[in-house]
Design a protein around this nucleic acid. Structure first.
Lengths: 149, 149
DNA sequence: GTGATAATGAGAAAGATTATCATTTGCAAT
DNA sequence: ATTGCAAATGATAATCTTTCTCATTATCAC
């Protein structure tokens, strides 16, 4: 038996708050997501979830990830490579953005309030309210400018 | 017979400049692309190409679009919906960006030099040279604020 | 605990893209 | 203009990601 207010993961709580049925599988996936600070694709999420509960199905991971996205719990990202990747949605604080290393494919997160408000302003001026920003800049590491040699 | 310097489409010329073999199919696809100012997916490109040359294969469209992207002639975009969409790559002038209407899915292009330089600066400060920017903001049309009706 | 309802698992199916391979074509040299 | 060869093409199979189906199982309100 578990105590009625067992401390679930932050995402599991969010799941409940949104009125979603909190099944064992969703609890597992929510836990895995709360535990991740990278941008896993569904395959990778499935791998991590199976370590917690081996009888979970990949179909359920797909379903749950979609459900969470529809409920604003997750955000889907596209970094190329053909599969969708997911990360926990930002809360109240501003969006964050991604810099992708052109050579290694590594994803580096960054925030910038000036960028936040510039985008907000641009969109407003076009007659829209900003809903989401999807920004990833691809960059190539600069060679350190040695004194020519 | 055609004169030696027959005026191909701008993209066909670009194709030649990059040292790519200029086949009939590539000429057709280049023409169709030069003629488009929207963001067609491969299926749509295929439809348009067939109107010019009915014996073109969709496999060739996929191949050509990939080839052009690898050679900086096209840019692949992801606006959601599961298929890649393409547009002619920007030349020297700054990048352009996309505003997506949350309700209709309509894609609206815009440019903003302040945004250009801000991004350039952010990326430089992180130790990278900017290669590409992928920015799409999703927005919802503002209800015109009538005097409370 | 019970029951209605929704979620799950396993695999089939769908949709988009890439690979295969025999045939055709572009293009450089003749 | 013709020839030869490497590369491109067409048609379709194969692959990859994601969604759907449906019988079984679990959740949550009572």
């Amino acid at each position: 038996m578990k105590e009625p207010n067992s401390p679930d993961s932050p995402l599991a709580d969010l799941c409940r708050q949104r009125g979603l049925k909190l099944t064992g599988q969703r609890r597992t996936i929510a836990f895995v997501l709360s535990d991740s600070d990278d941008h896993p694709d569904v395959e990778e999420l499935y791998r991590r979830a199976v370590e917690v509960d081996p009888r979970i199905s990949i179909a359920t991971v797909y379903r749950t990830v979609r459900l969470f996205e529809e409920n604003g719990i997750l955000q889907r990202r596209d970094f190329g490579g053909g599969r969708a990747r997911y990360e926990v949605a930002d809360g109240d604080h501003g969006d964050h953005y991604h810099l992708i290393d052109a050579d290694t494919g590594k994803v580096i997160e960054f925030e910038n309030t000036e960028l936040d408000s510039l985008l907000e302003g641009i969109v407003r001026q076009m007659g829209y309210d900003l809903v989401t920003t999807r920004l990833s800049v691809v960059g190539r590491r600069k060679a350190k400018p040695r004194s020519r040699g």
